[in-house]
Write a protein that binds this DNA or RNA. Structure first.
Length: 131
RNA sequence: ACUGCAGGCCGCGCUAUCGAUCCCAAACUUUCAGGUUGGGGUAGGAAAGUCCGGACAGCACAGGGCAGCGCAUCCCGCUAACGGCGGGACAUUCCGGCGGCAGAGCCGGGAUCGAGACAGUGCCACAGAAAAUUGGAGCCUGAGCUCCGGGGGCAACCCCGAAGCGUGUGUCCGCCCGCCUUCGUCCGCCCACAGGCGUACUGCGGCGGGGAGACAGGGUAAUCGUGAAAAUGUGGGGUAAGAGCCCACGGCGUUGCAUCGGAAGGUGCUUCGCGGGUAAACCUUGCGCGCUGAAAUGCCAUGUAUAGGAACAACCUGAGGCGGCUCGCUUCAUUCUCCGCAAGGGGAAGUGUUCCAGGGUAGGCAGCUUGAGGCGGCCAGUAAUGGACGUCCCAGAUAAAUGAUAGCGCUCUGACCUGCCUGCGCCCCGGCAAAGGCAGACAGAGACAGAAUCCGGCUUACAGGCCUGCAGUAUUU
RNA sequence: GCCGUUGUAGCUCAGGGGUAGAGCACUUCCUUGGUAAGGAAGAGGUCGUGAGUUCAAUUCUCAUCAACGGCU
């Protein structure tokens, strides 16, 4: 498997799963990113599924929303392997959702830093869940 | 060369690393399927707005009426179709140039939701007499009514006064009778008054004309501060005053004829008329329009209520009428006919059994990308566009791919720096130099914007660049 | 993706061709020992934006921008 790949199976796509995550999941914020997460212990297929979004209120143009989501996805893709290893070791299934909450178009550096920090935080959270 | 207008076109590139998705191939694990490796493809001119027109799909469809919606100069053409596009013309209007005293006219370019205001209805604030068969002021007329007196002066004229309007306007003359009556006035007498008597004066009275005035009535539409707009303009005649009332020359519309044009329409003569504007007010005329939309539609998986469909069975919706009465025809009522209304047409209806399906769930497949397709030159055409030929397959996602980072290049911009060229000017005459051009360095910027069934248009957004045509300005030849 | 509605004062809304209004809020004054209530006066508008029709547009037409709602 590619170390930095992000195939469709690692994306959170089911409408039901997303609704459940927003209803029953936990969240924390590393500005300008808001992260929702939910963990299932002892899952048959351990792994991660992630989704990315931003508000239509803050970005009117579809072109700008696409840009924000691409940056989020790219930052996640490049920094996730560490977390993924930890998750596989503890036999967890994690559902993540990254929401961009700022109103101005960001640079890649800002996104990269925020996502990296939130992923380290997530690793701590997964550790708590496993024990 | 610059500026302006109109039209058309392009709308960043390359490399490396790490990814996403679709297609093809290979081997691997293997139940479907999945990942791995290799190769190839992957956003626009507007993908946007969703304003028109279609393709495609489902449903509906006896034939009309009303309503509703849309279109609107003429001719020809293009297109699958259009409210779109191309060419030419007409009308209105704007701009520039020529022309010229001013104009007429000519040339070039732009804009136009450009049918109808002699079918009807409505509206036109404020102001103004009046906003569409109007009548205030003014002007003219006017039967009858009121008034036109006195004084000075030779006279011209001056002064005071009538009616009336209103605060200074406006103010007569002729004739007849000068007779009759004694109406009027003055004086005297009788007398409380009424009345009577006497005397004198005036010219009373009648007729005709003129002037002034108020008002009933009538005529008139030339003038009237307005207003966006005031009833065809100018001149003459005409009249009590006036008026297209009449005439001449015009303006606008219209009838007919002639002529030019294929037509809209133009020109000339002629007939009749001259009651404004507004139809992006209602409306009228002509033409066109079934409805819903890929979340359409078909299929698979899951499948418990029993709303639905089909087949079969027998009693076949309810009420009424007719006949040849176990049956048939017909009327009314309820319901459906998938945007409205009324009529009308068509179909169906209750019960049981069996089968299909099915409240829900929100997964998958097809539709889904080969098409009014792209590219290339050729041919036809002024062009829109069409034709044949060759060649290519060129996005297909679905919490939604087409990207991220770094470097190099390209284009544009510059209160800066360096070099070179031209050299307005200054002076010590070979130096300094405004402004401009070229090259380099540095810095900044690279717009508008992201497919969602697919096409044709329209509209809107857009850094920068390129091309074509026309006009103007300057310079050179 | 498709369909529709609404933009008027700080807020909530009228006005549907002829000088832009109401309620609340705001400012000043009166009243009160003071505040509220009450009374009097006042200020505040590119009628979302741009074109057009008209003598005249908040109103009619077209385009555009924004907000909101519905279909599933």
């Amino acid at each position: 498997m590619k170390r930095f790949g992000l195939p469709a199976t690692e994306k959170l796509k089911s409408r039901k799963a997303i609704d459940a995550l927003f209803r029953g999941g936990q969240r924390f914020s590393v500005f300008p990113v808001l992260v929702w997460h939910r963990w299932t212990a002892g899952a048959a297929e351990p792994g991660l599924q992630a989704g990315f979004t931003c508000s239509k209120k803050h970005f009117k143009r579809a072109h700008d929303r696409n840009r924000v989501k691409r940056l989020l996805r790219e930052a996640y893709r490049l920094q996730k392997p560490e977390l993924l290893e930890a998750v596989h070791g503890r036999e967890l299934h994690g559902e993540l959702f990254f929401v961009f909450v700022d109103k101005t178009l960001p640079t890649f550096a800002v996104i990269h830093a925020a996502v990296g920090k939130s992923l380290r935080h997530l690793q701590k959270k997964s550790h708590e869940v496993a024990h």
